[in-house]
Amino acid sequence: MENWIKRIFLTNGRRPVAGAALACAIAAAGAGQAFAEEADAESEPVVKPLIEPEVTPRRVQEDLIDTEDFEVGVYTGLMSVEDFGVNFVIGARVAYHINEDLFVEGNYGFTDTSETSYEKLSGSAKLLKDDERDLTYYNLSLGYNIFPGEIFLGSKYAFNTNFYVVGGLGSTQFAGDDRLTANFGWGFQVLGTDWLSLHLGMRDHIFDTDILGEDKKTHNLEMTTGLSVFF
């Protein structure tokens, strides 16, 4: 042990002096490199972007269908009864939402029909009595939301929408008779709040009639708009 210490620290030769000098040189080089790196870091300019984007989060108020599954509403519009003109129609709607896509609905509506072209041209000939001109229908249909989406009002409000198809069976009371009726159509729903919605729709009520002397299948188009509430 003593011999080792003497070889390092005693100055009885050139080797210890050279080792000490080498150690001092390494320490000085390390300190110089650290100083140079610090100076370079301080002198390096900070590059700023030419345009600084101002990104602020936007708060959007979105209304969803409430947790209730039942929907009740009223509607009004126009109904074109084949051979009996286009007339004002009014009705009521009740729906049960099985899930977010599938629903069952029942409709009840009525309208007053106009005279046919034959009645207008003949003058006095009447095909139907006045009370037989009232048309009343009811049906039970199955609907499916095929295109759920959203519409935006400004930058703060978003409203859920549904484009749906619907079809079913029912009955139409017209010209003193009850007629089996199939209905097919589409609708567009806008949810104004979580309990109120607006409906726009078109239906084709298809039933057979022989009022003009021959049996034929008639297509009776209906366009409506209405409001409904969830409960």
Rank of each mutant, 00 (worst) to 15 (best):
S171H: 01
G176R: 03
G187M: 03
Q173G: 05
D215N: 10
D210M: 08
W195F: 14
L142N: 09
G192Y: 05
H205S: 00
F163N: 06
A175M: 04
T181V: 09
E150M: 01
W195V: 10
N183F: 06
W186V: 10
L180V: 14
S155E: 15
K217E: 15
F159Y: 12
T161S: 04
Y164C: 05
S155T: 14
S141H: 06
T193N: 11
M202H: 12
Y164T: 02
K216P: 01
Q173F: 13
I211D: 14
L142H: 07
G149E: 09
I151S: 02
G167P: 05
N139I: 07
N160K: 15
V165I: 13
P148M: 10
A175R: 05
H205C: 00
F174W: 07
K156C: 02
R203V: 00
F207E: 11
L169E: 08
L191W: 10
P148V: 06
D208A: 14
S155D: 15
Y157D: 07
F159I: 00
A175Y: 06
G170I: 12
G167T: 06
D194Y: 08
I146S: 01
K217F: 10
K217Y: 08
S171R: 07
D210T: 15
T172A: 10
L169C: 04
Q189G: 02
G192E: 00
Y157H: 10
L140H: 11
T181L: 09
D215H: 05
A158T: 08
L212F: 08
G201L: 03
N183A: 13
F159E: 00
G192K: 00
G168M: 05
A182L: 14
F188V: 01
H199A: 03
R179K: 15
T172D: 09
L212V: 08
L212E: 11
F147R: 04
Y164I: 05
D215P: 01
R203W: 04
H199I: 10
K156P: 01
G213D: 12
F188H: 05
T181I: 07
L212T: 11
L200F: 12
F163I: 06
M202Y: 12
Y164A: 12
D208N: 14
I146D: 02
E214S: 14
G167E: 04
E150A: 06
S171D: 13
T172N: 04
T181P: 06
L196T: 11
G176P: 03
T161I: 11
Y157V: 05
F184D: 03
V166A: 02
G187F: 04
